[in-house]
Every structure is written in C-alpha cells, then in structure tokens.
Design a protein around this nucleic acid. Sequence first.
DNA 1: CTAAGCGAGTCGGGATTCAGTAT
DNA 2: CATACTGAATCCCGACTCGCTTA
Length: 938
Amino acid sequence: MSSSEDDRPLAAVRGARTNGTSSTVSADTNGTTPGPIPTNKNSKSVSSRLDKMANKSTNGVRPINAAGISLVNGSVEDSGDLRRGKRKGHQAPIKESSSSEDSDAPLNKRRRTSNGIRKENGFKQEDISSDDDDVPLAKKAAAKRRNMPLTTLVKREKKPPAPPGGGSSDSDIPLATAKLAKEKQRIEQKAAKPAKEMRAEENKATTAAGAKRKSAGNANTSELAKKAGKAPPKKTNGVKKEESSDDDVPLAKKRKGAAQKPIESTKKATGKKTKDIDTKPTAAKGKGKAKEETPAEADEEEEEEYKWWENQAETDGTQKWTTLMHNGVLFPPAYESLPKHVKMKYGGVEVTLPLEAEEVAGFFGAMLDTQHASNPTFAENFFKDFQAILKHVNILSFQKCDFKPMYDYFEEKKAEKKALGLAGRKALKAEKDKAEEKYLYCYLDGRKEKVGNFRVEPPGLFRGRGEHPKTGMVKARVQPEQVTINIGKEATVPAPPPGHSWADVIHDNTVTWLATWKENINGNIKYVMLAATSSLKGMSDFKKFEKARELKNHIDRIREDYTRDLKSELMADRQRATAMYLIDKLALRAGNEKSDDEADTVGCCSLRYEHITLEPPNVVVFDFLGKDSIRFYQKTPVIHQVFKNLKIFKKAPKTKGDMIFDRLDTTQLNKHLQNYMQGLSAKVFRTYNASWTMQEQLDEIPNEGAVHEKYAAYNLANKKVAILCNHQRTVSTTHETMMQKQEEKIKGLRYQKLRLKRMILSLEPTRKKKNPAFFKPDPEIDDEEWIKEHQFSLVEQEKERITKKFEKDNEKLQENGEKVLKDKELKERLQVIKDMEAEFKTENKTGKIEPKRGATVEKLEAQIQKMEERIKKQETEAQVREDNKTVALGTSKINYIDPRLTVMFCKKYGVPIEKIFAKTLRDKFKWAIESADGDWKF
DNA sequence: CTAAGCGAGTCGGGATTCAGTAT
DNA sequence: CATACTGAATCCCGACTCGCTTA
C-alpha cells in the first residue's frame, strides 16, 4: 500500500487533476469537471483501486445462517428459551442519549450512549484542538469559493431545478454539428436494430429524418416536421440546449407551448378512454373485448406515445397527475382446502386442522426442502404464529409435527403440472393472463401506462434477508377491507370483490400509487405503483440522474469543505466530514437507524466500533453487513486525517457495540448536504460516483475491434461500477460443480488435442525432431490416472450412445411394423467399443495412435488449430464465470449508471443497444435512447 | 461436408418482495 | 414518525445455446 501517495490530501489530488498537470488519462477534457474522489493518484488509480477491491473483498460470499442447528433436538417447549438466548438478550436497557445523566449506566451496545457522548465531549477539548496544528480553514475556503465556476452561481440564483440539459458545460457544441451528429446516429442506430423493431419504426424514422435533412440547410425544423405529420424532433435534455436555429422565441414560451399540447390531447384521450375503461368492468368484459383489440394492434395505432422527455413541462413536481383511471388490484385466489387424505401428523397421528391453520401448515410444509425449514428462528416464529391460529386444536410441540404429507402432496402437484406438457401449460397461462389483463394498464392523464405490481401479495411465511428476527412469521392474507384505492375523481371506482369493501377510496394526485395496504409483519406500507417503463418512473429516473450530474458542479466545494472539516473542533462537524469522506470515497449508504426487530445491518452513519479496524499507518478495514445483509469487506487506505479521526471516534470508553458516529445521523447529514445543492442527499453520491466511474471507464475503451470485444469491455466497466457499489450475489449452489464440469471438459479437449498430435507423429515420426516444442507433452494432462479414467468414461459414453441408438432404431422399426433388430446386431455394433479399448491400450503403451483413413498432416493440424480455439474459448469463459460469481452487474446497470452513458457508448462504438439493454430496459430507458447521442457526457 | 433437427442444460430476464433512503 | 419512493437480491421460468446426430 504505497501510503505516501494516499496520504496526499484530497485537495491536492484534485488540484492536480484540475490543472491538467497530472498525467491522468481519465482527466476530464475541459479540465474542470471533477472526478470521484477515489481517483487517488494517477491514471490507473480507479481501476487499480477497484481491482484491489475485487481481490480483497474475500469474494464476499453472503454469510449463511450460521445456525445449522436442527430442530430435532430440543422440544418446542424450549422455544421460549431459544428465543431469549438468541439475540442480544444480554443487552442492557437502553438509555436515551438525550435524557440520561447517570454516568454509571451500562453502555448500550448498539446505540450511542450518553456515556460515550460525554466522554467525547471531554476529549473534544484536549484532543481535537490539539491535533489541529495545521489550521487551514476559513480564509482559504472563502478564497476557493470565489473561484467557483460562474455557472454554478448563476444557476443557483436563478432556477433551482435546472431545466434538463440546460446549465452545464456542454453548451458550447455548435448546434449544426450536433444536429448532424445526432442524425447520423439515428441512422446508424436504425441500421443496428433488429429487423422486427425496425419495421415498426420505419415510417416514423424515415419521414422524420427526411424532414430533418431537408431542413438542415435553412428552414425551420419544426415546420417541416409538422408537415410530415410529426411532432418537431426536439432534442431535449442532456447535451444540446434547444437554443435552436429554430427561431428567436424565448425558451420559456416555447416550453409552454410544448407543455400545453399534450395536455389538450390528454383531455381528448381521457374522454375517450373514460368510456372505454368504464364499460369494461361491467359489460364488455368477455367477448366484446377480445376482438376489439389485440394488444399489439392497439398499441401501435393510437398512442403516438407520450414522449415526456421531449417537452420540458416542468411542473413543480408535487402534482403527479390530473386524471387517473385503473381497475384496482388483483387478489390471490382464495385458499382451497387440501384433499381429505392429505393431513399433517402430530405425534404420528393425522390431525384435521381448521381451514386457516391448514393453510399455514401448508406454508411450512411447502418449504420443507429449503434452508428456511432448518433455521431455528424461522421454525420458532412460524410455530408461534401457527399455534395462535390453531385455536382449540392441541398442538404443543413443534417436534411432534410432521408436515411431510403436505410436502409430498405439493410435490405431486408440481409433477402433475409438469406432466401437463407444453400445450396444457400454455392453456393455463392463457387463462391466468386473461384474468390479469384488465389490471395490466391504467390511464394516467389519459395515457395508457403499465402498472407494476398490481397483484396483492399472497399470504405465506415471511422470509426476510439475513438474520431477520421475524423470519418465519405468518404473512397474513390481505383483505379488501385493508386496501385503500387512490384514483381520479372522474374515474369509476373499481368494484371490490363481491361481499367486500375497500378500506377507503381517495383522490390524491400528489402521490403516484394506485392502491395501498399495511403489511402485518413489520407494519410496512405496501403500494401498487406504475411499472418502471411508465412515464412517471421514467421522469423520476431522469431527475435522479440529472441531480447526480448537477452534483458535478458542487463536488469540488463539498470536498474542500469536508476535507477542511475533518479537522473541525466541533465533534459533530468532524464526524460529519469524516462520514462524508467515506460516503464519497467508498460509496457507502447513508445508514439510517434501525430497530431491534430488524436485521442488524448498517450503513455509514450507523457504523459501530466493531465494523472498523485500523491498521496503521493509514489502512482501514471495513467489515460489516450492509443492506440485505450483504457483507461489505474492504481494506482501504485513507488520508491521514480520516485515519486519525476514526481512531478518535473509536477511542475508549467506546467499545464493541458503540456507534462510531455518535454525534451524527442521516437527517443531520442530509440537512447539511442540502446547503450545497437542492435535493442533495447521501444517496446522490452513490449515483454520482457510479455514473462518473462508468464514464471514466468507457472513455478508456478503444474504439476498435469486434463488437463482442467492445461488449466485453463494456461489461468490464460495468463490473467495476458494481464492485464500487458492492453489488454482490451469492455464489450459486451449482457454481462449483459447473466449474468442475467445465474444467473436465477443457481437459478432455486438451486430451483430444494431444491425440491429434500423436496421430501426426504416427504419420510422420520425424516431425518430433523438427519441432520438439510442438510435441512436448501437455503439462495439464500428464496424469496417467486421469487419462485412464477419461478413456474409460469415453468408452462408457460410446457404449451408451450405441445402445440408445439401437433401441431407438428398434422402436422405429416396430412402429413401421418391420422386424426388430436382434441382440446380435447390437453386439456387432458394440464391436467398435472393443476397437476403441484396444486403441487406447496400445496408445497408452506405445504413445502412438493410428490416424483415421485419409488423414493427412495438414488436416490434423487444422483440427488442432480448431481444438485450440475451442480450448481458449472455454478457458476464458470459465475465467469470466469464476470472476463474476460474486458480482451482480444488473443492479448498477438498472439503477446507478446513467443510461445515457450506455446509449452514448453504443452509438459511438457501434454496438447494438439490444446487446446491453434487454427489452424491458430498453423500454425503461427509452428516454435515454432517444435523447443521448455518441458524444453525450455524464 | 453442411444444413437442419433435436434434447439437455444453462442462462438471462422479469417478477417478486423485502430493505433501504428521504422528507 | 409515517409515508412514499428507490434499490436489492433471489426465485423461477422460458428461451436459447451447444453438442451431437441425421438427412
């Protein structure tokens, strides 16, 4: 760990970057846009750091529930004890830090303690002030601030939420060039599209493009476009401002105009749709509907779908819609009792349970073969809830319960379903689809939008992730009486299931949910919302990334400030600064407080003593469970002051269980961040650093080579971001066996290669002398034992193959009413096996193989060549598989990497977008695909 | 030898539902 | 604190790949 460099204060590092004096490859072209802080020193820093992380992070396999304790030992009557013993039973009563004064109160292990705080206060005077010899501070900062880019100032004064695409450094791209570039891209993109999609868009694209091309010289784009029957092809957000050749209409006016149109059309559409949707639930349900619109048709014709990103109608954001129509939620089917012969047993005797109890027992029965069933907490929680529902039935001991009959029954059912065959299952699916059809879409401001999770969550046993104290509890069935519907005033309220009523029906257009209810396990509120592809979600996604981009304009100052504050005399400030450093550098989450009935996971602000280990001079080891109980393990060098601070924050009497940042919480932190930029919060740093890193990584990819190479490079960049964000996945249970299989396969190929070489030698023994290197034995397979085994399995395979074929042939013959082959025939066919064995035998003895008839050295060499390629392919594949076994790329792609970066990459590098964004992502990121081009910058 | 067909196994993607953050 | 929204891993199923056979 070359500590000397890492010790450099951030400011210095940044300075180097900003001056453009650093040799940094990743240095920003215009030299002003700041990178993420992690860029510690030189060009390689980010990647090397990430690589380090990758290696260090122990390939963080998710910790499996340690308790492998089987339930078989110990009776249910014990469960109380188990429970008590389990978690922090030893914990001292919690003292609220604010109130308590008694200094001899025992330290609470999890929360910050009054005790701890007082001590900190004491030390504050001596320690903090003393270690602060090198006071920089206020003056410097003020000076720096004066240097702040003008844009920043202007923007902040004028309009808080900068119009998308406004405001930033890219505005100096000449419009004409930009337009041309964009058009080029559009064409290229079209070319890259798969035929099917292309056809769909052909008309649109060509006319629009044509119109545009004509207009390029002189005229008014939008006019021509209108003539072509299209909305003006506006470029919106992101790169170019719409400062337009268009005309001299002030921007504001234009925006208004744009905003108005959709509203009008909305109204019209609304009217139409209202009728539509209103009648559906009542009359037209069954037949009328089916013929009236195959979904595909309907989609293509109407719509002229809403491209929200093409008009800047910035509502203030609190109102989410004006009209809203939907059909409510879909409840899971009612429980059907099991057949009479399927019963759980208690003490070996079949018991008849009340319906509700049977259902719950079934929940457990269905999970017998999962990890959960052997988790004591799970069983305990389940059993407690189970007993509560049993009423008078006398079941007191979990050990005496036998759910196996239920399990078997479910397995049977599964098998039945499988046996239905493809056709049968298709039919079932069609039926289900039909039942769901009306819930799939809603109408928001008259536009058809996809609903996300319209299915009410079915009852079951709560799983929870990590060591969740509530795992195994019964998740109750949700009744319509618990569900509140949110819908437009003008819309028909969907009817609750017969005999039921809704909890409430409201018309709140400041929220986006269509329905809500409260879940019984944690008391969390669940919502039915629109799908990720909807305009509402799209817009907020867009805003999220714009916010992250805006952070660019403030990040320098923020970093300066917190670097300075690392030495603050105020404990609270110093902690805050340190936390910000960690959030910025390590992409930690904010770390809200959690209660005792949740899994014990932490983020930055909730880090505790035991989560950080200090290794002088400047390395910090983080080891804790983060969101979803995913382990965060990282050894990383930090700047000196941070190291010093963490040492202070861990100072006695603090000990295991105490908060590191006892003077800080997420609310304070975010409040502080708001001072820098509206809407800035801790999580924005994650988005920012992720996208920034991606941009940096993409910039380093050479624009050459085959598409698949570029794609691989993209994935590598993606992977770095995933590692930055600590996105892990559990190694699949099959991983190891799959790796072994693959290795075996590779070995087999190598053996084949070896044999080919031996054949050459049989043809021309002299070659060995001419080219000894070529015929050198392959070190990978010099193991005779293995060779023999392998030969044996090859022989076996061959036998099986021949036998199978024989049987198949016979079947065919039988079908045709012909004579069946005799066993003698089979024996004859199996004669080759003998040959094989003989061949192996001599091969093993002499090292020689008779090549097949007609074989020539040239042919054999060609085969060897091919074999080598296959081996190489398999090997790289295996490598990637191994490398990625714990890294999940998806999450960062979906949530953190600005999709416009990907679009930019694809357009610039000529990689088809569908290679990187699957169908749903293309839908979700439509706004990005249509608005970014090859020179877009985050 | 190539193209097409075939079946098993793998993989990717969407659905699910829980876990966070933010105000 | 409740509310509302984003973010997250995993489950599960369908589709596609791959190696092999057959025409």
